[in-house]
Nucleic acid binder design. Structure first.
Lengths: 144, 144
DNA sequence: CTCAATAGTTATCTTTTGATAATAAAATCA
DNA sequence: TGATTTTATTATCAAAAGATAACTATTGAG
């Protein structure tokens, strides 16, 4: 197995992941939000509390643009900001309960799509899938 | 292993795939193209010859918008259209040699990033990665 | 205290992307 | 043959996203 074959296999695999992910997440985004707004909300949901700077680092948005989108999320009562007591320049961003609910509902729909996709897969194959994900996550898709 | 655990694992895994893919493809897109134009060019590269309708089906672009972006690719001499002899409504879209070169160069850069990422991974682990990708591709990320 | 750095906001402009209507030409159907 | 469908284009308009400059407020360093 040379690197080139593995490389090409990874390209094909990545395309498949993107295609299936799109199928699973299709229609999960609420219409009141743009894709970027939903991505930001999702990022906050899994990392809260976060600062605006952290959002910018992780989403490649500039501060002004991230600030603008965050303002819209705030206007929709999906997030709220609280000033840091120690450093009053910083704003810690939290989900509101309606923000939490919006993300929960989105994931519920994704879960339905997921259940539908695996409904005909045998227990043994699911175990293999589980094992393979662990392998890839630890051996290749790790942080650094 | 219940479905919920596997579901959550998949979400985390998908995020990791997206993050690493972005790292590997970073700066591969030529500045003369927008992301969508590059995606279309990449799609043509791996499926040529294609028709405009096929591009629309696979990229969720409307015909007018896809036609517009395709015109720009044509103006940059990256693709060319040839009418179908049997059905003269249809246009088969091909890469030009400079289009091919642009895609090749992009993948060369991605390959460099890939080689850099796996340079410290042992032969045994690479075999495991290879095996795990095959498993996931056939058991979960299949077409249908 | 002064000055630079950090965190964030507001305003503005441009580019990109998305949506829709109107059109043309060729093919198919009845 | 005439009506309908398919394939694609052009022209607009609107919305989303990206880029930049100017600004405020706070903190930290010397």
């Amino acid at each position: 197995m040379d690197n080139h074959k593995l490389f090409n296999k990874l390209i094909t695999f990545t395309n498949a992941v993107y295609r299936v992910t799109e199928e699973l997440t299709k229609e999960a985004k609420p219409n009141v939000l743009t894709q970027i707004q939903f991505d930001i909300l999702d990022f906050i949901a899994r990392n809260q509390p976060v600062t605006l700077s952290e959002i910018c680092d992780c989403t490649h948005l500039s501060m002004p643009n991230a600030s603008r989108e965050l303002r819209k999320l705030g206007e929709n009562d999906l997030i709220e900001k609280k000033s840091d007591v120690d450093d009053r320049r910083k704003q810690y961003i939290y989900m509101t309960s309606s923000g939490e609910k919006m993300i929960e509902d989105a994931y519920k729909l994704i879960k339905v799509n997921f259940d539908n996709r695996i409904k005909d897969i045998s227990k043994e194959d699911l175990d293999e899938i589980n094992y393979a994900i662990d392998k890839l996550q630890s051996k290749f898709y790790f942080d650094r």
